[in-house]
Amino acid sequence: MNSFPPRTATLLYELDKKLMVLLRDGRTLIGYLRSVDQYANLLLQQTVERIHVGKKFGDIPRGVFLVRGENVVLLGEIDALKEADQMFERVSIGDILALQKQEQDAKIEKAKSIERSLKRRGMRFPPDLVQDDFL
């Protein structure tokens, strides 16, 4: 297993390390990488979903995840020095979910109001404002 060619990107070094994984839908997972394959399918253990809103964050325990590779944007080993909670303020799951909902509602409301006004003028909501970059 240690015979893969040098200079080749591989996730084998990341095995059993604590990783931050960014998914295509923007969610971030933190967990221990237990297994990986050629598609970058990931098996994560002790996973939490971390939600950031401004300077605050909260963790939702998720357990074991198998993430299909195509949904992975990037991942990296958590730098113990960098992870320190002092950078951000940890809040409860309930609080962070409420904050996240506020943030999302504001976005949706803004988009809806623009869409309504454009519709009245017989125009279509610009599809490019919709996040479909990964499709």
Binding site: A40, H52, V73, L75
Partner: peptide, 29 residues
């Protein structure tokens, strides 16, 4: 692509990037 010594242009917008200094980026993205 695997990068070391990573930083992002807009760290406020991507707080989770603060946790990592190395990164594996999937080619398809």
């Amino acid at each position: 692509i695997k990068l070391i010594e990573v930083c992002v242009s807009d760290p406020e917008k991507y707080p989770y990037m603060n946790y990592i200094s190395e990164s594996f980026i999937r080619g398809s993205v």
